[in-house]
Amino acid sequence: MSFIRVVYVLWLRQLKRYFRSKPRMIGSLGQPLLFLLALGFGFGPIFQKAGGGDYLQFLTPGIISMGILFTSTFTGIEVIWDKQFGFLKETLVAPVSRFAIMFGRTLGGATIAMAQGGIILLLSMIFGFRPMSILMMLPAILVMGLVAIIFTALGTAMASRMEDMHGFQLIVNFLIMPIFFMSGALFPLEGLPSAVITITKLNPLAYGVDALRFFLIGTSHFGILLDLSVLMILSFVFMALGSYLFSKMEA
């Protein structure tokens, strides 16, 4: 069937581009690891003293989420590159549904981000992270996939409305960074001022971080049912939004 074939080649293209760009691979793994080591060992003693327990245990799900957030948003935004280099035209004049194109791209970006999350998880175990159960790592990987889909689709949606890469820095500073910092990736949500709690409740990544903590270390702030419901609903919503905006794009 041609729909599946189209989705497949777009998925494959994303993977090839990623694995051929060594700097990008190193960067997307190196940055989270740097955060994990610097913060994990730097704040570990204070966290322990304050009664929070092992900070590395707490931090690892947050850093995995961070890696996924960055990689997936960037692969989504990459559509802008395709537009500037002209390749977008090749896909847009083809007699295939815009949804198939967007869907294939998004799955490709999400696959990369998810794999990267898995790799960070394995590497963190070298540095002393201990998941509560090996079996629970499977649903954790699934959660990574959902988070990856949400942010790849969000990246695509934003890129569809951009003319060039000039807005990119703005997006990083005023969207990605706040999403990361206000997700509970670095600190526990318990006992925070209610204004901060409200903001994190509106942050999709907070539910991803929380669900990962549930499956990896057995604690959860929102409750796993709420986490999973929010993540699944948002995957659909952002995919729909991304497809709609992408279909309006002119090469």
Partner: peptide, 24 residues
């Protein structure tokens, strides 16, 4: 197209295979 529209990060063959898939 008048302007470039290839994927530079793919090989010549991969560009053609991609096209072949789009047009089934």
């Amino acid at each position: 197209f008048q302007d470039p529209s290839l994927d530079d990060e793919l090989t010549a063959k991969e560009n053609l295979l991609f096209h072949g898939a789009l047009y089934d």
